[in-house]
């Protein structure tokens, strides 16, 4: 049971990172990123492929973060030069294109077989309780990113992002180069998602393309909206509550007689949908509403 809880907490931490990254993009700046999972995937795959090829982990991880940030920079630069709603479509498309790329370009990505044997960092240092160490690593990353992003939010940079979210035209008249700010915000969010991907791949030691489906992006959005867009603590809380709910409902199948595994999966989706509807009616600002710094 402890092992199960540690595993869940690790996955919650990784989701919390994704929600924190999306919060920079949507919560602070108002950018719609429907391809969160793609930057997650770029991080996981870059780190995983380099690590199994024998590259030292710090170098592989740095490369993975740079790769996700670059993907973010490229996408944002192209899409933001068009109209604002294009970013949503471009990112959504990027998510699916990436998954198909991972599936079909087997020479590079090993296709549907996925990457096996991704090394687990510092495995030999912790012969016992390795999972606890890994949970500590993930939570340490969450804490570090939280502190950094909270500082960003309170800075003049964060203030400019919120101004852009509220009214782009006013931000322009105020002398802000809104394209520059948007691209930077998008890149920061993409890099954080990349970090989450790194932690995900090295935790499971195995990744394959179908782990990176659009539904993952949806869950990150749900977590952020549930917790409170614009609020970094809200992003973390949202991830905890949402995954707690999804994982907790797993046990419902032991209690409720007619609920089989398949029915449960469907019921979970309904539960999540219902949750979102109720939330939007009763508390659209989320559990922890945004507060002025």
């Amino acid at each position: 049971m402890t092992g199960y809880l540690v595993a869940i907490a690790t996955l919650v931490g990784i989701r919390a990172l994704l929600a924190l990254g999306l919060n920079v993009q949507w919560g602070f700046t108002g950018l719609v990123n429907l391809g969160v999972v793609a930057f997650f995937g770029v991080g996981a795959y870059t780190a995983g492929l380099l690590a199994v090829a024998g590259v030292a982990l710090p170098a592989a991880w740095a490369a993975a973060i740079v790769a996700s940030a670059l993907a973010g920079a490229l996408l944002a630069t192209v899409a933001l030069r068009l109209r604002e709603d294009y970013l949503a479509i471009v990112t959504l498309g990027f998510g699916e294109v990436l998954r198909l790329f991972l599936l079909n370009e087997a020479w590079l990505t090993r296709g549907a077989n996925g990457i096996t044997g991704i090394p687990r960092p510092l495995r030999s240092w912790f012969p016992a309780h390795y999972d606890l160490f890994y949970l500590g690593l993930v939570l340490g990353c969450v804490a570090l990113i939280y502190l950094a992003l909270e500082r960003l939010r309170r800075s003049p940079f964060g203030r400019a992002l919120r101004a852009i979210r509220e009214d782009e035209t006013v931000a322009t008249v105020a002398g802000k180069n809104i394209v520059r700010f948007k691209v930077q915000a998008f890149v920061i969010g993409a890099a954080v998602a990349g970090l989450a991907g790194i932690l995900f791949g090295h935790y499971l030691a195995y990744i394959e393309p179908n782990m990176f489906v659009p539904q993952e992006t949806l869950f990150v959005w749900l977590a952020l909206i549930l917790g409170g867009s614009g609020n970094n603590r809200g992003a973390i809380l949202g991830a905890v509550v949402l995954l707690g709910l999804l994982e907790g409902s797993r046990f419902a199948k032991d209690v409720i007689p007619f609920l089989t595994g398949v029915r449960l999966a469907a019921a979970q989706q309904m539960l999540v949908g219902l949750l979102l509807v109720v939330l939007m009616i009763k508390r659209p600002e989320g559990l922890l509403p945004e507060r002025a710094p």
């Binding site: 800075s155 003049p156 940079f157 203030r159 400019a160 919120r162 101004a163 509220e166 931000a171 105020a174 002398g175 802000k176 700010f181 945004e290 002025a292």
Partner: peptide, 18 residues
């Protein structure tokens, strides 16, 4: 959703913190 003060702060030019 920003305060009145923040509305002014945003308009300050040449902020190194941006």
């Amino acid at each position: 959703r920003m305060t009145v003060l923040e509305n002014l702060l945003v308009y300050a030019p040449d902020q190194a913190g941006e």
